[in-house]
Amino acid sequence: MNTKAVAAIYKYEMTRFFRTLMQSFISPVISTSLYFVVFGAAIGSRIDSVEGVGYGAFIVPGLIMLSVMTQATSNASFGIYFPKFVGTIYEVLSAPVNFFEITVGYVGAAATKALFIGTVILMTSALFVDIRIEHPLAMILFLLLTCLSFALLGFIIGIWARNFEQLQLIPLLIITPLVFLGGSFYSVTMLPPVWQVITHFNPVLYLISGFRWSFFGVADVPVMMSLGAIALFTGLCVVAIWTIFRTGWRIRQ
């Protein structure tokens, strides 16, 4: 294992992040605050509680998931797409590193950034509402797995994308709708029966439900099912990446 190479990629990607630290830090703080103003104060004041949790607090796990998923995906996809776009990928391809090391470097950095942003949102939220975390270890596990799996997904998107439009396509057309419709801001039980059934086909539901369970002990689906879903998703991404590197798809000619 070429750990020095992994460290080099990770560090290089993180410096890109730190160069724009203020941006990385301020934008989630502002967007979280806006969500609290709109959903928490304006709308939330008319909703007493959802399943025994104050609405303001209820949306915190969903908010964190929303940002973590989109940030992990976009950071990882950009991280690998950019070198492809400017051509610096030649160096990684000609270096004594295997696919696993390349993936750990890029995905690890993207996941770290998403984790950082998730933490910032959690702390910002704490300024607005009282947050209790019933299962802190489960919370950390869900958060880490979500950062990791969506960074893996983003990595695949970055390899697949041939231009900047394609890079934006999947996050915009698939991930954002799935997150919004996956119960970020409501409990599935609030939906009409037909939509409840449909929603259960949304993989993001399981992640948000499990994550919310770790905060408040209430969930839309059994927590083990949530854990199974995210494990399955992570596994699928790993297999996809392994296949990509084995065949050299869109990377090596």
Binding site: N2, K4, A5, A7, A8, I9, K11, Y12, T15, E91, V92, A95, P96, V97
Partner: peptide
């Protein structure tokens, strides 16, 4: 930085 990165990438 870019030169340091190259050295690390090659495991040195």
């Amino acid at each position: 930085n870019t030169v340091r990165f190259s050295r690390g990438l090659f495991g040195k």
